[in-house]
């Protein structure tokens, strides 16, 4: 059975882009004891001491303001960032829908992108072709499926991304709320597909700002602030409080 267990997990980002990254600074810093790394390195504590356990059947919403650490936590659960302190243990296959456009090649056609996505998941070419047909039919892109993605409208891009991203059926589904964009007609079909995806998954972790979405999809709400968990309640109690 799928589960997620996090014990005092912390993640810190060194912010190199702010100016500590250059080799010159590094070399100059090496020559003086006072200008060491600590002095000019800006470290952001993205996640601090997170302890929680999620069992099979749970649908968890991560809520909190921008910068609370929701997406970073999703990335940790997806295995992209590894904890700097503490421990993370997960059981079950993981599927992450974090950024719709990521991994899309703008110059390649929609079909090629879906095949590529299949290969990212380690599928065989034959399986990938079958996936492309299925995703093509689902996305309703028609003949646009064989045109480079850079010519797509924003809505078409989201439809393709959604179709490609939902080709898997993971036991643990990690999702950012981007899927809410898209035209109404598509959303009807998308909701159907999402429902199937979610019901097939044993665990859903969803980062969201939208209370309606949280009420509709989730059973438990973890509220984060400044990288910490401030409350962890069943959905009814969360909204009651």
């Amino acid at each position: 059975m799928a589960f997620i267990r996090s014990d005092a997990m912390s993640v810190e980002f060194p912010l190199y882009h702010v100016g500590a990254r250059s080799l010159k600074k590094r070399l100059l810093a090496g020559s003086s004891a006072r200008l060491r790394d600590e002095a000019n390195r800006i470290v952001v504590s993205a996640l601090r001491d997170l302890s929680f356990a999620i069992g099979p059947g749970e649908r968890v919403a991560l809520v909190g303001s921008n910068g609370a650490g929701k997406t970073t936590l999703l990335r940790c659960l997806a295995g992209i960032y590894e904890p700097v302190r503490g421990r993370l243990e997960m059981q079950g296959t993981v599927g992450a829908l974090i950024d719709p456009a990521a991994g899309m090649d703008q110059e390649a056609t929609g079909r090629e992108n879906i095949v590529l996505r299949g290969m990212f998941l380690g599928r065989s070419p034959a399986e990938c072709e079958a996936m492309a047909d299925e995703a093509g039919a689902f996305s309703g892109l028609g003949e646009f499926l064989d045109v480079p993605v850079r010519t797509y409208s924003a809505g078409m891009g989201i439809r393709l991304a959604f179709a490609a991203a939902t080709l898997m059926s993971p036991q643990i589904l990690l999702m950012d709320e981007w899927f809410l964009a898209g035209d109404a007609d598509f959303m009807v079909r998308a909701t159907e597909r999402l429902e199937r995806l979610v019901s097939d998954a044993q665990i859903l972790v969803l980062a969201s700002h939208d209370n309606a979405v949280v009420r509709r999809w989730c059973t438990r709400v973890i509220r984060m602030e400044g990288g910490r968990i401030v409350s962890d309640l069943p959905v009814a109690e969360h909204f009651a409080g």
Binding site: E89, T93, L121
Partner: peptide, 30 residues
């Protein structure tokens, strides 16, 4: 990348070598 059922990352027990080798083997598989 998928299909791995059990995932453990413990900062106190980083297992750097086996994870680096695993990465290389995974790259070869893909």
């Amino acid at each position: 990348p998928t299909g791995a059922d059990h995932y453990v990352r413990d900062a106190a027990d980083p297992r750097m070598l086996s994870r680096a080798l695993g990465d290389l083997a995974g790259g070869w598989r893909l």
